[in-house]
Amino acid sequence: MSAKAMSLANGRARKRNRLAIVFVAPAVLFLAIFVMYPVFYNIYLSFTDANLLKKNTSFVWLKNYKRLFSDPMFWKYAYNTLIWTVFSVIGQLALGLAIALVINRKMRGGTLLRSFLLIPYVIPAVTLALVTKWVLNGDYGIVSLLLQKAGVIAHRQSLLALPKGAMAALIIVNIWRSYPFPMLIYWAALKSIDPELYEAGKMDGAGTMRLFWHITLPLLKNTTIVLLVLRIIWTATYFDLIRMVTGGGPAGSTMHLPIMIYQASFGTFQTGYASAISVVLGALLFFCIVFYVKKTGLDD
């Protein structure tokens, strides 16, 4: 290749690289400004006594973390977060899978049914919270009245006024609201399973349950892992419903870490302390992300 051709080729390559940088730059800039900067700034704040009431901030090293881990309320709220997350996610996945199995069959009005089943996912959280409070009102809520008549709760009592009842009610509402996502993903995964596998299983004499346990479930393993990790992250950080329905009550029984962070930030204006709590919550969720990345092969 002549020197002139080489120079021309190099010039084109440089131009391509420059163009590539131009195309990538907005995304990188976006990530840097809206993801990296907040994350690192939050970590920095967690080592300070930053407070919205004070103009000056000083470095306090691990003081916020020491205070957090020695606060019995943190452990109580962390436990609440665990209960909220575990039961919500299990419920969402189980219900999502069950309904996906139903809608995977050929049936009349299937499209309409699938659309109908997606409704919970598009209901705004504030509407859901208001309706939840309404139906669970101890005086006139339909669900409360039914439970009162059945003797499950006392006359003019509400699940929302009972520690275990409030958490259970919130988890059920959250499952109802969130199952459509796993349902859709499972449904897509079910569609990709080769029908011949079921045919072969049937020829070997397997019944419906055996087919489900030995073919369907193993083939949904990766989908389940992805869903599990995503739903854990989304549920553990889901704030609106609890905040609007119980505000963390009664007696802190539904208070979870995101509400604790909100209280520390905008209740007592201790942004440094709030940052420490969010770093701890973030670290826990980070392990989930690592697990997700490894399991899905995204690291390759």
Binding site: P163, G248, G249, A251, M255, G267
Partner: peptide, 16 residues
């Protein structure tokens, strides 16, 4: 803007 009064008082009302 906080709920510590509420938590404490509800705790007594609920016998906790």
């Amino acid at each position: 803007a906080t709920t510590f009064f509420g938590e404490a008082i509800q705790g007594v009302a609920l016998g906790m």
